[in-house]
Design a protein around this nucleic acid. Sequence first.
DNA 1: CGTAGACCCTGCGCGC
DNA 2: TGCGCGCAGGGTCTAC
Length: 278
Amino acid sequence: MPELPEVETIRRSLQGPLEGARLLSVRVRDRRLRRPVRVAALERLNGRRVGDIGRRGKYLLLHLVEGGGLLLHLGMSGRVLLLSRGAALDTHDHVCWQLDGAGARGGIEMRFRDPRRFGLVLSRVSGDLSRHPLLASLGPEPFDAAFSVDYLRERAAHSRRPVKNMLMDASVVAGLGNIYVSEALWVAGVNPLTQAGRMSPTRWGRVREAILDVLAAAIDQGGTTLNDYRNASGEAGYFQVYLQVYGREAQACLRCEGSIRRVTQSGRSTFYCPGCQH
DNA sequence: CGTAGACCCTGCGCGC
DNA sequence: TGCGCGCAGGGTCTAC
């Protein structure tokens, strides 16, 4: 589920409750995530205090004041939950942390829940989390100045792969996933099958703008959802975004009234309008 | 080198 | 109602 906007929304929702809280203990109920959870390494963080909470692409970075921290990735079905201590366990609550949270009587509990177990819980005992090797090959953040038209042209030079595949490549740009790439290309009016190396600077400009607009709107939407619903369940979860093309196969295009088409690219569904995306 | 495909895992919705 | 199937928004590894 989560792409950049969801992860960013979760990051914002965790910041307040977690910052300054102390990790007391951790319980690993299932080690089998994308990489096996290292229990001893997680336990070494007990007693430390949560500092800043960051995001890089789709990764969440829980920096600890004393150094090191937790690196979380939600995969396809992961969630981070903040609950009062002792809340009912779900089958897929794989890692549970007890914290001495400020507000809640008896502290708070953070849980990593992930039915499909494509997610990741990693820890670093010391040093800067953002230097973690997993983050080294990530491309620029979409909102970073480095994500420019010139950069896109450079990366696309001589590439024959479709523009959609290029934008799905995390080493090109961090945080984009299948949904928002389809949405952004629809907004830009660019056919997802277009060879990346054949895109004009003008079209790259439109694509870049569309990516920023689509992501910003989704993050806004997430903020709205947060304000409206959070704390009812204590969940820092997902939210409904109004999608203009994704999942609308055979329905009328909202711009030109053509019929939305679904194709498969590298095993993933792409939605686009043949009528107005060229 | 760049690229496509297989694979990891569970849950859901659909058609029969 | 039950069952099998295809599909799902993540990333990584391997082979061509």
